[in-house]
């Protein structure tokens, strides 16, 4: 049942591919009318996304709010049923699997959410929160052993094992995020979707959690899809980066290549918008502020969806939808004018 996609969107170096996403679409229906609900259109949250992630790699997924990052992650996590496309995990198309097979695979794909407050059950003790997945999946049915494993996990994420007996409200945001990470690790996953995992944290705590995620990646050979809007954090943590705009990947490259040599006009605008914490640098660098806002994903612009805001746009951009082209080795860009 193994399927290898014809075209590769993987990093140029060797190593097996853990996850492939091909032609992924997620269109949510928009309804009108209370009694006779009628579909009047679709939110094209994800509209043809392709990428590969090699084992041990961290792929950053960036783009403005609403561009489809979370939805892409939710499709991979099987929390949404995609409208079209394939998600191959270890070469197996998740859509072809029956419930039992899917359950077996789900263990290996975990998630760390943005909000450490709402993602933990306030009535459960920390120890039970971390132990729950092991109980549900039956990987550690013995309570005493599970307890030991919970304490081990707490230690791994830098928390005192005594925290097992506390409740979420008795912990700080950074500590709760560590609990969320411990829970994600409890089933020894291969792949973790980190969805804005550090955005809700205090500035002074963010670096602690970034370091922890890095240490765990090395220690357990984890593969991450790292969804974030802070581009300097993405640059620090990721091996490769995919830039999304209105449901599509517009640029995909290795991290240094993308930040040193951005090619898509949108990526360039996005990078230019990030303020640098140094008044001298800020005073001397050119500021080209991108005009306008992201259009509605219900009625996206024709042709290249970026054309209404693009400074390079030509007449043809309103017609043809540009596909990803490999312009340099391992560097894909969806723009006809670069």
């Amino acid at each position: 049942m193994s399927a290898v996609p014809a075209q590769s969107f993987a990093a140029p170096h060797a190593g097996d591919i853990l996850l492939s996403v091909r032609g992924l679409k997620m269109h949510f229906p928009v309804y009108e009318g209370a009694l006779f609900r009628k579909v009047i259109g679709y939110v094209k949250a994800v509209d043809g996304v392709d990428f590969d992630i090699r084992r041990g790699e961290t792929l950053g997924l960036v783009g403005e709010s609403g561009c489809g990052k979370t939805t892409t992650g939710r499709c991979i996590l099987q929390l949404e049923r995609p409208s079209a496309g394939q998600i191959l995990f270890n070469g197996r198309n998740l859509a072809d699997l029956d419930r039992n097979q899917l359950r077996g695979i789900r263990r290996h794909i975990q998630v760390i959410f943005q909000d450490p407050y709402s993602s933990l059950n306030p009535r459960m003790k920390i120890g039970d929160i971390i132990g729950e997945p092991m109980k549900v999946h039956g990987t550690e049915p013995d309570a005493a052993k599970r307890d030991r494993r919970v304490r081990e996990l707490l230690h791994t994420v830098g928390l005192n094992p005594r925290f097992a007996d506390r409740y979420p409200h008795e912990m700080s945001g950074g500590q709760r995020q560590r609990v969320g990470i411990a829970r994600a690790l409890s089933l020894q996953p291969e792949f973790i979707v980190c969805d804005e995992a550090i955005s809700a944290l205090d500035v002074s705590i963010q670096a602690q959690i970034i370091n922890l995620l890095e240490d765990l990646r090395d220690q357990f050979n984890l593969t991450y899809l790292f969804i974030a809007h802070d581009l300097s954090v993405v640059r620090h943590l990721c091996h490769r980066v995919a830039v999304m705009y209105l449901g599509r990947v517009v640029e995909l490259a290795e991290c240094d290549e993308l930040f040193d040599n951005p090619m898509h006009p949108y990526t360039r605008a996005l990078l230019n918008a990030v303020p640098i914490p140094d008044p001298e640098v800020e005073a001397s660098r050119p500021h080209q502020v991108i005009q306008g806002e992201v259009p509605s994903p219900i009625n996206p612009p024709s042709g290249c969806v970026f054309h209404p805001r693009c400074t390079l746009a030509v007449e043809g951009c309103k017609k043809a939808v540009p596909g990803l082209r490999e312009l340099r080795r391992g560097h894909w860009v969806a723009c006809t004018e670069v």
Binding site: V203, Q206, A207, Q208, I210, N211, S232, C255, D278
Partner: peptide, 15 residues
């Protein structure tokens, strides 16, 4: 503690 886009990537952040 914050990574900077205008500087070389650091191996480890200093939280």
């Amino acid at each position: 503690s914050v990574p900077r886009m205008d500087q070389p990537r650091k191996a480890k952040l200093d939280p």
